[in-house]
Simulated scan of single mutants.
Amino acid sequence: MDQRLIFVTALLANARGIVLAHNHPSGNKLPSRADIDMTGKIKEGGSLLGIEVFDHIIITWDNGYYSFADQGIL
């Protein structure tokens, strides 16, 4: 995820909050360390800009999804 593109898009849309989402083609719905770290960085950046990160969802084809918000990570 390119944080700059995320925030440019959010700012141009005058968004107060965003939901991040991406897929794991492997079928493993658990977040990687990189997913967790990137989510934290985006949350921090959003805080500086007044844009809340409501959730980060990892989607898999056959194993459902993982929601950072549902797991209390955000």
Results as ranks from 00 to 15, higher is better:
A34K: 09
V19M: 06
L49M: 15
K41A: 08
N23P: 01
D37R: 11
W61H: 05
S26Q: 02
I59E: 12
I51Y: 01
F7C: 06
L12A: 14
N23T: 13
S26K: 01
E52L: 08
P31C: 09
M1W: 02
N14V: 06
F7L: 15
S67Y: 00
I59F: 14
F68G: 01
L5N: 13
N23F: 06
G40K: 11
L11C: 07
D2W: 06
W61E: 13
A10N: 07
Q3L: 14
A69M: 04
I51R: 02
I36F: 11
I36P: 01
S32A: 06
G17H: 05
Q71A: 15
N14C: 08
F7Y: 08
F54A: 13
V8L: 14
L30A: 13
F54S: 06
A21M: 13
G72A: 04
G45P: 01
I57V: 15
D2H: 04
R33I: 14
D70R: 13
F7H: 01
R4Y: 11
A21R: 03
S47A: 12
I73E: 09
F7Q: 03
N63G: 02
Q3M: 14
A69C: 00
N63W: 03
V19W: 03
F68C: 04
G17F: 05
L49K: 12
S67A: 04
L30V: 06
R33Y: 09
G27Q: 04
T39C: 12
F68P: 05
V19L: 07
T9V: 06
D70E: 15
S67F: 05
I58M: 12
S47F: 06
L11K: 12
I6G: 06
G46I: 12
I6N: 02
G40N: 12
G64Y: 00
H22R: 14
L20C: 10
W61T: 08
L48D: 10
L5H: 04
L48S: 11
H22C: 06
G45F: 05
R16D: 15
I42V: 15
